[in-house]
Amino acid sequence: MNRARIALTPQDRERLARAHPQILTPGAGARVRALLLVTFLAALAAFGLWRLDISLARVGTGLAQLGHFIVLMLPPDPGTQLPLYIHALGETLAIAFLGTLGGALVAFPFGFLAAKNVIPNIFAHFAVRRFLDTVRGVDKLIWALIFVTVVGLGPFAGILAIATSSFAELGKLFSEAVEALDRKPVEGVVSTGGSPAEAVRFGMLPQVLPVLASQLLYYFESNARQSTIVGIVGAGGLGLHLAEQIRVLEWQKVSFLILMMLVMVAVIDFISSRLRFAIIGKSRIG
């Protein structure tokens, strides 16, 4: 629907300027503060470029080298290792799926424990939130390095890394979804004599499950990409083979592995997007 544009008369502009002078006609102090902020940010950026030894010459050299590598990558060729790479692709999908599922199963109860409208005790709520923040503050790649040391190389370390990181991130998202629920269904269950557990079961779960399912699908899509990254440090999947081929300068195999990852992510993105829209649509109709 097109919205009509309202034209202000000079008299209207004058009245607005009198009513809100700090917005329409900022004073000299505001202009000076804005100029100082822009100058500070520009100086900070220039200092960062100088301190990190970033120059146009290095950027140009890097781009030329990148172009040379791209030429070496063409055409993509798996050689005789196509069956091995297909198996690694299955490992990558398994790491993403099992890691996301495991993290979601643990995050589900924590999402309710971290929600203010479920656990009103401020100390318990604070403790659960800070625990999730602590786990979430460690990147998936760091968790992968930790679990590779603990359980050894292979997909199991990748699954544990994805599950641990996803548990904390999904727990925070789940708690926010629970806190944003409409209280009327919960109050209706309580007013008819329902227990707190029944209020959660019949008042909260029907509202929150479609949102949680949509978030879970998005995280599976994201973890499919992340599972390749954690594989580079020895957690199995395509990432492990990608790191090996880069070390031995087999650039045609590197490009084939990258192409496999792009296709995998595109397919997962397409399917998960359709499923998310279907879930959201059904929840709105319901």
Rank of each mutant, 00 (worst) to 15 (best):
N2C: 01
R5Q: 09
I6T: 12
A7P: 00
L8P: 04
Q11G: 08
Q11K: 10
D12G: 00
R15W: 09
A17S: 15
R18L: 14
L24Q: 06
T25M: 08
P26G: 14
G27L: 10
A28R: 15
G29P: 02
A30K: 12
T39G: 14
A42Q: 03
A42H: 02
A42L: 15
L44Y: 06
L44N: 03
A46I: 07
F47A: 15
G48L: 10
G48P: 03
L49I: 11
D53F: 02
A57H: 02
A57G: 09
V59G: 01
G60A: 15
G62P: 07
G62R: 12
Q65I: 06
L66H: 08
G67V: 12
H68F: 03
I70S: 04
P76Q: 09
P76H: 08
T80F: 00
T80A: 09
Q81M: 05
L82Y: 09
L82F: 12
P83N: 02
L84E: 14
Y85N: 01
I86A: 13
I86V: 15
H87N: 07
H87T: 08
A88C: 03
G90R: 05
T92W: 00
L93Y: 10
L93T: 14
A94G: 07
G103R: 12
G103D: 11
A104V: 12
V106C: 01
F108S: 06
F108C: 05
A114W: 11
K116Y: 01
V118M: 08
P120A: 11
N121V: 12
I122D: 04
R129A: 05
V138F: 09
D139T: 10
K140D: 13
L141S: 05
W143A: 00
A144E: 05
A144K: 06
I146R: 01
F147Q: 04
T149G: 13
V150D: 01
V151F: 04
V151K: 00
G152N: 09
G152E: 05
G154Q: 08
P155S: 13
G158T: 11
I159L: 06
L160N: 12
S165A: 14
S165V: 13
A168N: 04
A168G: 11
L170D: 08
K172P: 10
L173K: 03
F174D: 03
F174E: 04
S175T: 10
E176C: 10
A177V: 04
A177I: 02
V178D: 02
E179K: 11
A180Q: 13
L181Y: 01
K184L: 10
V186Q: 01
E187S: 07
T192N: 08
G193P: 05
G194E: 00
A197S: 13
R201D: 00
F202M: 00
Q207N: 05
Q207A: 03
V208M: 04
L209R: 11
L212I: 14
A213N: 02
Q215H: 06
S222G: 08
Q226F: 04
S227R: 07
S227H: 06
I229M: 08
V230C: 05
V233R: 01
G237D: 13
G239N: 12
L240F: 14
L242E: 05
Q245N: 14
R247G: 15
Q252S: 03
S255L: 13
L257Q: 11
M260C: 12
M261D: 07
L262W: 12
M264L: 15
V265L: 10
I268F: 06
F270S: 14
L275Q: 09
F277I: 15
I279P: 07
